[in-house]
């Protein structure tokens, strides 16, 4: 499509104190198409959205899914009813988009598409690269639903109440799913996990 540089068109520019904007103000400004507000919203949520996508669909598809999420966020803000927190709503979109993509990946895998062999390429690990890599490889083996709850709660550190709101389920369901996901992770990691030392433990 022959479109001009889209960000260059004139847009409303309200006098916004960029840092101090509550969700309602931010949403209203984004609905008006305020470029700064949109970018602000993006920067506010990009890490967690991208993180969720990356952990759920893996590195190959993460970027495309993250794009999809934000396009849907901005296109969908008009229909956002405010009955959930903005963050909850955005993460729900992210999880839904990522799980949809994960479903496609599985179908592709069943058809025998070979380039899906590549498992979560590890970013540079902070503390123990070996364990991080194993954990990421094990996560790639989990069913996508388990992976989602594990990422939300144990990686992103959200509460069960937040997880339940995002996954649209009861708190009890969120807890029991997480329990199963962790048990599965322990099975997958097996001796690797047993052999590792606790962070801050004595040197070998």
């Amino acid at each position: 499509m022959a479109s001009t540089a889209v960000s260059d068109i004139p847009r409303p520019r309200a006098d916004l104190a960029a840092a101090a904007m509550d969700d309602a103000t931010l949403i209203a400004a984004c609905r008006r198409g305020d470029a700064r507000a949109m970018e602000l919203l993006y920067h506010q949520y990009k890490r967690r959205v991208f993180g969720l996508c990356h952990r759920i669909v893996g590195p190959v598809d993460a970027e495309e899914v993250a794009q999809e999420v934000f396009v849907r966020v901005f296109r969908g803000l008009a229909g956002f009813r405010g009955d959930a927190q903005l963050g909850t709503w955005i993460y729900r979109l992210a999880v839904n988009c990522a799980l949809t993509q994960a479903g496609k990946q599985r179908r592709r895998q069943e058809v025998g598409d070979d380039h899906l062999e590549e498992v979560a390429a590890p970013p540079v690990a902070s503390r123990d690269p070996r364990l991080s890599r194993r954990v990421e490889a094990a996560m790639a083996e989990l069913p996508a639903g388990y992976r989602a709850i594990l990422v939300l709660h144990d990686v992103e550190g959200l509460s069960h109440e937040e997880c339940a709101a995002i996954m649209d389920c009861r708190v009890g369901t969120s807890k029991s799913q997480l329990h199963k996901a962790r048990m599965r992770m322990r099975e997958l990691l097996g001796p690797a996990l047993a052999a590792e030392r606790l962070p801050g433990g004595e040197a070998p």
Partner: peptide
């Protein structure tokens, strides 16, 4: 280990 995964 999960909490310390490097951020993407």
């Amino acid at each position: 280990a999960l909490a310390e995964l490097p951020p993407a």
